[in-house]
Simulated scan of single mutants.
Amino acid sequence: MSTALITGASSGIGAVYARRLAARGHDLVIVARATDRLNTLAEELRAAHGVAIEVITADLTDGAELEPVLERLRSDPPIDILVNNAGAGLLGNFATANPDEMYKLLRLNVLAPTLLTSAVIGGMVERGSGSIINVASVLALLPEYSAGIYAATKSYVLTLSQSLAAEVNSKGVYVQAVLPAATRTEIYDRAGGDISKVPDVMEVDDLVDAALVGFDRKELVTIPPVPDVAAWDSFEQARGVLASGFSNSKPAARYRG
């Protein structure tokens, strides 16, 4: 069976991805900062499914700790599925945000998935197979609903997924962007928030199970809470209509006077 590497695998969305992919028979490389949690999860999955589990402890905001993960993505046995799940939030608005905290968030939410994808994509293209799952957020589509830079980081993840898919789908590599809405994970506590004050929170198991249905259907963008796929189709059609005007060599009439 193939091997999947999952970042942020010690809890929440990443841990459920690990359980689901192990149940499908995939060997795993699980990555996070919490060594004890990773080892406990690895023991559980080896016993339950008889799969091989590698554990890499790494803070992906630290270049020195990121490097072994990049090396694993470039080495054998090859990684067939990369799940870019590790991420964090940052409460507060842009005007008052701590620059050091913003820098750290950008390294985790933007730089890390970019470098991880870069490390694995060449081998996937060469083999003509592979999958990349990027966990973004519905806030990528609603940035005005979120103060600060979090939504912007997730917009990047969505855009990266879309542009990468256009580049590599024809070469046998599948890219999926998963856009959760409010989901019951530790991201709220770690950012200093209170999830009990958030309405309509989805359970993590439901989120990942839905995302894997989208994965099996080879969706480019999977938004588990949206009830009618026609809403997304309409959004994409409107984007196409907007794009049809980009090739005009003269400004639109409303800008001439």
Score class of each variant (00 low, 15 high):
Thr222Asp: 06
Asp228Arg: 03
Arg19Ala: 06
Asn85Trp: 00
Ala210Gln: 14
Glu67Ala: 12
His49Asp: 13
Ala182Val: 07
Thr96Gln: 10
Met124Lys: 11
Gly122Gln: 07
Val226Leu: 09
Ser146Trp: 08
Leu179Gly: 02
Pro225Thr: 15
Phe215Leu: 10
Asn85Ala: 01
Gly63Ile: 04
Gly130Pro: 05
Leu70Asn: 08
Val208Gln: 01
Ile187His: 12
Met124Cys: 07
Val221Thr: 08
Glu186His: 07
Val138Pro: 02
Gly192Ser: 08
Ala147Asp: 15
Lys104Arg: 10
Ser170Arg: 14
Ala23Cys: 05
Glu71Gln: 06
Phe94Glu: 09
Asp27Leu: 03
Arg239Trp: 01
Leu60Arg: 10
Tyr103Met: 12
Gly50Ala: 09
Ala88Phe: 04
Ala151Ile: 06
Ile223Gly: 00
Leu60Asn: 05
Glu67Ser: 07
Glu203Arg: 12
Asp59Ile: 10
Ser129Gln: 14
Pro227Thr: 15
Thr114Phe: 14
Val213Thr: 05
Gly50Pro: 06
Thr222Arg: 11
Thr3Phe: 10
Ala252Met: 09
Ala177Cys: 06
Asn39His: 09
Ala136Leu: 07
Arg254Ser: 12
Ala165Arg: 05
Val198Asp: 10
Arg127Met: 10
Val51Asn: 06
Glu54Ser: 08
Ala86Asn: 02
Pro225Val: 15
Val157Lys: 07
Gln162Pro: 05
Ala165Lys: 02
Asn39Ala: 09
Met124Leu: 09
Met124Pro: 04
Ala238Met: 09
Val83Met: 04
Ala140Asn: 03
Val178Glu: 00
Leu91Tyr: 09
Asp233Leu: 13
Ser163Cys: 11
Val173Tyr: 02
Leu5Ser: 05
Thr222Ile: 14
Asp200Phe: 01
Thr61Lys: 14
Gln176Ala: 03
Gly122Asn: 13
Ala48Pro: 06
Glu144Thr: 03
Leu28Ile: 01
Pro113Cys: 14
Asp76Gln: 15
Pro225Ser: 14
Pro78Phe: 12
Ser234His: 09
Lys197His: 11
Leu179Asn: 01
Ser75Arg: 15
Ala119Gly: 03
Lys197Asn: 12
Ala4Asp: 04
Ser244Trp: 03
Met202Pro: 02
Ile187Trp: 13
Leu158Tyr: 01
Gly123Val: 03
Thr159Gln: 04
Leu106Cys: 14
Gly14His: 07
Leu111Cys: 04
Ile56Asp: 02
Gly8Tyr: 05
Asp36Ser: 14
Leu21Lys: 08
Ala22Pro: 02
Asp59Lys: 13
Ile56Leu: 10
Val55Asn: 04
Asn93Ala: 11
Glu44Ser: 03
Lys218Gly: 11
